[in-house]
Design a binder for these strands. Structure first.
Lengths: 162, 162
DNA sequence: ATTGAAACTTGATCGTT
DNA sequence: AACGATCAAGTTTCAAT
């Protein structure tokens, strides 16, 4: 794993691509080299399949933190606060939920120190009252394609107009 | 949107593929037809890019529910309880967290009725004490590639051994 | 380990139904 | 809208470095 690998992985992630040709266009690494590197990354278990799911712990992101973040109520606050949370390094998902003015934030970090600085980053955002965080021991399920969570029949019933 | 489209979308999601050729192998729909359908799905905004991210609300899954699920403590309980939660229709992510014996569960459903039956499904699982759910108003951020949440430098520092 | 060029496989297009 | 045949474009391999 070196900087060339990271450039390739980030091109895949940022541009939503997975083919040697397109990765060459983004990174200027020759497609045959890209091909060679992708095979290595697959053997190492860092990328998984054709759509290039990546293994978080193989990437060094072994800790997942889920936080409830409570903010003051105020006109338009939730938009700016949400955006600021989303920009904190390591933050993966941000949900603004019903009821009180609060957010659920999921982040991936490399180590305990980064987890702590993450939470203090949350708390230093303007309008944020308090946070409550828990560490994930096991990610039992994390499906990137929600359509997979449904039987074909249920989904068809909900979707198909006939 | 008809059953043929759903077969194609499920092949993409389940097999982790996105090319007409491979979809033909899984579905027995000729690749030229698959190609035609994929273009339509793209125009409709249901699939987004080369790695085929899907739009949840376009798929009729407009409601996201995030739940805390508390379970009794017991040897090995968390594994079986976690698996059972993961199998509930619509459940997308299941995390087993530190501290008390509890889970964070994120689900996508079509309507309010399905949301309610979802929560009662949780509560009917053996060893589960109680649940606390909130509805998502806005998904501010949901990044499928966590590597994107990091600046190149931070990630390189954490990953590269030199 | 890297790369340019060759060989091969696949995706995209087109015309017919 | 569906699909078989065709063509363009891509991926994979290979030999040289």
């Amino acid at each position: 794993m070196d900087k060339k690998d990271i450039k390739i992985l980030q091109a895949i992630a940022e541009e939503g691509i997975n083919s040697p040709e397109k990765i060459e266009e983004c990174t200027d690494i020759p497609k045959s080299t890209v091909h060679y590197r992708l095979n290595q990354l697959r053997e190492q278990g860092i990328i998984k399949n054709d759509i290039c799911d990546m293994d978080l712990s193989e990437l060094g992101l072994s800790i997942t933190v889920i936080s409830e973040v409570y903010a003051e109520f105020g006109e338009g606050y939730h938009e700016t606060v949400g955006e600021e949370l989303a920009e904190v390094e390591g933050v993966n998902q941000v949900y603004f939920t019903m009821g009180d003015t609060d957010f659920i934030v999921i982040a991936n970090v490399t180590d305990r120190a980064m987890a702590e600085s993450l939470v203090s980053d949350y708390e230093s955002i303007d309008k944020i009252d308090r946070t409550s965080s828990r560490f994930v021991i096991t990610r039992v399920k994390n499906e990137s394609h929600p359509i997979n969570d449904f039987g074909a029949d249920t989904l068809a019933d909900a979707l198909i107009e006939e």
